[in-house]
Design a binder for these strands. Structure first.
Lengths: 156, 156
DNA sequence: GTTCGATCGTTTGATATCCAACAATTGTAC
DNA sequence: GTACAATTGTTGGATATCAAACGATCGAAC
């Protein structure tokens, strides 16, 4: 009996990826996107995306940091942070103060609520990272991380 | 002589990344974003983003493929492809034909112009991948790629 | 044949991101 | 001190993405 093509339900056809299959860029993108989605689902109840999580972490670790510094550290344009911070401030997770000696910049810090939200997010992140560790394998983790950092630092 | 803080021009303050520094998710994002930017700049004259490049490659390798199949293979929602294909068709890089036996789906294929554009993009991609190879090192490349694929396949 | 669930591509509405240009402010050089 | 260049955060315009809902169509079960 010849195999009947079995393509009906859910239609998972075999696709020829061509050179994409071997390209770091493409596979980096696929891995990043899946990872992003997975974290989003884990933290869905808390309702905060990975980007906002990075923002909160950076502010928590660097009280008084400016928006521009956060944007540089998280690899996003400063204008991307305007709506994000507007929202975080509105929801009282982040406090924004002007300084006397430089009235252009804001000094950002976490409120008590912000710290609490960050703590909850950290729990999700730990679970998420454990999943990733399981996939990568502890033996290769260090090297993998090192290469990711090297790419981010040197490709520019 | 005490170090003078030297923070003036370009202001590159030292930032505390906290746990972010060790998280795969965050570093994956940073690496992917830099890589995306680097490719965009390389292919600026051609004026095509990495996402569109993947789309063209998949169509070129799988003539007659449907939009949904392209979206699945490139890890994007099918609705993301609507405006992209609209544009590619308008610029006569991609041809879209309806089929007789299933009038829901389109059959996508590259036009001559599309093939030419893809060829030019492939040159950029080769250069781009060479840069990445230089950073990663050929000794670790295979393993690195394998882990990226594993993450994309298993994290869901 | 008819009915009902599944699939295809689109629409709609929401975020996230970039870039370029801007006003306010600062710092430096003269 | 004044003039000019740099920096900060915002605005405006563009693209890319997702998710949910939709109409059209198909296929399978009855």
């Amino acid at each position: 009996m010849v195999r009947k093509k079995k393509r009906a339900r859910g239609g998972a056809e075999r696709v020829n990826y061509g050179p994409l299959a071997q390209w770091i860029g493409f596979n980096l993108r696929m891995a990043q996107e899946s990872t992003f989605q997975a974290f989003s689902h884990l933290s869905k109840e808390i309702g905060e995306t990975p980007g906002r999580f990075a923002t909160l972490t950076l502010i928590g670790r660097n009280p008084g940091i400016s928006q521009t510094a956060v944007s540089r550290a998280s690899g996003r344009d400063k204008s991307s942070l305007t709506p994000v911070l507007e929202d975080l401030v509105r929801r009282r997770l982040v406090a924004r103060k002007r300084t006397d000696h430089d009235r252009r910049t804001y000094r950002l810090s976490l409120t008590a609520d912000g710290k609490q939200a960050l703590a909850r997010l950290n729990k999700c992140a730990k679970r998420h990272e454990r999943n990733l560790d399981r996939i990568i394998g502890m033996r290769d983790r260090r090297k993998f991380l090192e290469i990711l950092k090297k790419i981010a630092a040197e490709i520019g």
